[in-house]
Design a protein around this nucleic acid. Structure first.
Length: 271
DNA sequence: ACTGGCTCCTGAGGGC
DNA sequence: TGCCCTCAGGAGCCAG
């Protein structure tokens, strides 16, 4: 579910509750997430102090004085800061308990999320070391996409979803950015010009920034750490709008299945 | 080296 | 009302 903007909204929501706080431990009710939650996580976290709450792609990084919690929301994960005494729901799988009686609670019905621990530098963790640049970082531009796409035959959409190319883009924002740049998502990534990739780079930035400014996209169940839905779904131009009218040209938005994912586009605006 | 397909899981929504 | 089918915002892994 959550892509970069939703993870960033979540990060901003939990950060003020965590910074410089002591952790008491963890309560793991269901360790079978994408990867098994480390069995001794509670003991590992006891008396750790949170120094920083970061994000890398769709991963949240809760950095402590002696290591980092890697947290991924998968398709259906969400985080809340609650009194630890709040009765957990069926899918409230992990609590990170804080001093003072609060906890950071992970709810994840589909269990595609992850809670992992690493002692070393998080950027060298296997799940993070191969990630491409941050699309909102200083190092990213359309030139990078152009460089990485030469000789590639796969569709632009599949190319943008590849975290090794670019971190944090998922199905919604890949569709929206391609529309904003006027590029057909099924076009071979290696056959798109530098000028068009530069336009796409700008489109990716502005779509992601717009989504963050509106609190993310809530299609079904995304909530911020405060429990609020996002509003960017009201600004979507193509995603989920099959059969509806293109807001730019008045044509009809189409949906296609491409490498197992639904892609949405306007055949008149995107070439 | 690349590529698409499969897989993990639960829940919602549509058709009958 | 209920059953069955399809689909969903991720991404690692595998065979070809």
């Amino acid at each position: 579910m959550p892509e970069l903007p939703e993870v960033e909204i979540t990060r901003r929501g939990i950060e003020p509750h965590l910074l410089e706080r002591h952790l008491e431990g963890a309560e793991v009710r269901e360790p079978r997430l994408r990867w098994r939650v480390p069995p001794r996580l509670g003991r590992t976290l006891t008396d750790r102090v949170v120094r920083r709450v970061g994000r890398r792609g769709k991963f949240l990084l809760i950095e402590t004085d002696r290591g980092t919690i890697l947290l991924h929301l998968g398709m259906s994960g969400s985080l809340r800061v609650l009194p630890a005494s709040t009765p957990p729901g069926r899918h409230d799988h992990v609590d990170l308990t804080l001093e003072g009686g609060e906890c950071l609670r992970l709810r994840d019905p589909r269990r595609f999320g992850a809670v992992l621990w690493t002692r070393g530098a998080p950027e060298s963790h296997p799940l993070l070391s191969g990630l491409g640049p941050e699309p909102l970082g200083a190092g990213f531009s359309g030139d990078h996409l152009h460089d990485r796409s030469r000789g590639r035959k796969r569709s632009l959409h599949a190319f943008l979803l590849d975290g090794r190319v670019l971190a944090g883009i998922g199905n919604i924002y890949a569709s929206e950015a391609a529309f904003a740049a006027g590029i057909h998502p099924a076009r071979a990534a290696g056959r798109i010009s530098l000028a068009r990739y530069r336009r796409l780079g700008e489109a990716i930035r502005s779509v992601l920034e717009g989504a963050i400014a509106r609190g993310g996209t809530t299609l079904r169940d995304f909530r911020s750490a405060e429990g609020n839905p996002g509003f960017f779904q009201l600004s979507l131009r193509v995603y989920g709008r099959e059969g509806e009218t293109c807001r730019r040209c008045g044509g009809t938005i189409r949906r296609r299945t491409l490498s197992g994912r639904s892609i949405y586009f306007c055949p008149r605006c995107q070439r």
